[in-house]
Design a binder for these strands. Structure first.
Length: 427
RNA sequence: GGAGAAAUACCCAAGUGGUUGAAGGGGUCGGUCUUGAAAACCGAUAGUGGGCCUCCGGUCCAGCCAGGGUUCGAAUCCCUGUUUCUCCGCCA
């Protein structure tokens, strides 16, 4: 949530900043409503103050044997006269909230304006494999020939947009997750296994609602309705909702493994076969709560962590600095870590590291006491570390050998019982 | 799923309609005492959201789980919801 004060004090600044996100913002309705709100509020509160004062005088007057019926009458009248204004005030506040809560976060000043087309890579690692002397397979073929994934039976037991990890495929997936998890533990992050069913408030604080409430799965039979998390960020960033942390417990560093469930309605494209995009995928997610002062350093740290994970696997990847309009709705800045997928000839996102600054904290009242004892909003950051559904295809494709086998990266072998190479299974 | 109990400030806890911004205790901070510490004693400290002003201060509104209601007046009464605990049932 953008600070209303900022909108009122620097409407032009906010307008320009949102323009970079391709968001056409008109501050006038907010300015008008705010003005109206303050006026009404003062009026309503003045009446209440008088009511309170009169009521408070009742006991002493009674004690002296005075007559209080006039006061009763007067206070009742005051209350009645205030009813309408109070109702109006409520309406205005709801309307105002509605206007502000849908606004995306302001982008950082250094971001390029516009959408995807203005993203630009700022770091590159490794080389795109050449595959000399043989025709490389795509990951769907590899996963089938190596017996890692069963798409057919997945369609049978579930439907499209999903898959089954089988045998060594399941173990490879689990190895990846273990590798991520252990790295985070070593880096001092606290492991969390959150519930996968969350309430509306959690989606609201994360900034996913109300805008994206149609994009998640809502669970029949829950009351109030719960949704299945689209990312562990939604859970992690709500851990300290409505809390005031003390300065010495910041930064708080968490990570969680969860499957992520998304509708991805209409987003499936033919080139995104296999496990590039599905209704369910595995992800380890990092979240930090920190101070305004610590927020930039935390961002760097998390980008570096995501990079180190891909690098540890020896995969070719790049870091893409997203233009303002391509950053997530709630985020002030986002860097994507993108891994090379040979068959698609593109770099695909495996991690998205973002700084929400105080946007989420404001929505969820996540605060801390600074060294002067002042209550301030935390900064929240999140980043995948990592999502497996792109790493897995990239890994098998990039590390495939002429004979159709795939080399297992060194770092994963301890989690796979020492297996160093995946060989095609005989048909 | 059924029955019951509970939710008060950093923590424990009193408070069942009237100056309650909420007794008491603990904690924390400062001090006295002490060579130092402990104990004892003295003092300080009560969150949060919002409004206005002559803005290192003042003042008003909200606020005792949340949302409604009754009342001149509610932490206290009523309704709804949430969460926690206990018991029963059912179940992986």
């Amino acid at each position: 949530m953008i600070d209303v004060k900022l909108i009122l004090e620097k409407p032009e600044y906010v307008k320009e900043a949102l323009k970079k996100k391709n968001w056409d913002f008109d501050p006038t309705p907010i300015e008008k409503l705010s003005e109206e709100r303050v006026k009404l509020l003062q009026q309503v509160e003045a009446v209440k103050a008088e009511q309170n004062k009169l009521s408070a005088s009742v006991p002493s007057i009674k004690k002296e044997g005075g007559d209080v019926t006039a006061i009763f009458k007067r206070v009742k009248e005051l209350g009645a006269s205030n009813k309408e204004a109070e109702a109006k005030l409520k309406d205005i506040e709801a309307e105002l909230k509605g206007l502000i809560e849908v606004l995306p976060n302001l982008p950082d000043d250094d971001l390029a304006a516009g959408g995807k087309e203005n993203n630009h890579p700022i770091y590159h690692y490794g080389e795109e494999p050449k595959f000399e002397g043989f025709t490389p397979k795509n990951h769907v073929e590899l996963c089938e020939s190596l017996g890692l994934i069963d798409y057919k039976r997945a369609a049978k037991i579930s439907g499209t947009g999903t898959w089954i990890y089988t045998n060594l495929g399941a173990r490879l997936e689990w190895a990846l997750l273990n590798y991520f998890i252990n790295t985070h533990i070593n880096d001092g992050y606290e492991m969390i296994l959150p519930p996968h069913l969350l309430n509306y408030e959690s989606g609201y604080t994360a900034g996913q609602f109300p805008k994206f409430k149609e994009d998640v799965f809502w669970l029949e039979g829950t009351e109030p309705k719960k949704f299945i998390l689209p990312t562990a960020e939604t859970a992690l960033v709500n851990l300290h909702r409505n809390e005031i942390l003390s300065l010495d417990e910041l930064p708080r560093k968490y990570f969680a493994y969860t499957p992520c469930y998304r509708k991805e309605a209409g987003s499936y494209r033919t080139e995104e076969r296999g496990m590039i995009r599905g209704y369910q995928f595995d992800k380890v997610e990092m979240v930090q709560y920190t101070t305004e002062e610590g927020s930039d350093a935390a961002f760097e740290e998390m980008v570096n962590k995501a990079k180190a994970l891909v690098e540890g696997l020896g995969l070719c990847y790049q870091v893409d600095k997203l233009a303002a309009g391509d950053c997530s709705h709630s985020m002030a800045r986002t860097y994507d870590i993108e891994v090379w997928i040979p068959s698609m000839k593109i770099y695909k996102e495996v991690s998205s590291v973002s700084n929400a600054r105080d946007y989420q904290a404001r929505r969820g009242m996540i605060r801390y006491k600074d060294k002067d004892g002042k209550t301030r909003y935390c900064h929240t950051l999140n980043g995948s570390g990592l999502a497996t559904s792109r790493i897995f295809p990239a890994l098998v494709e990039q590390l495939q050998q002429p004979d159709g086998s795939v080399i297992i990266p060194e770092v994963l072998r301890p989690y796979m019982g020492g297996i160093s190479v995946l060989k095609p299974i005989k048909k």
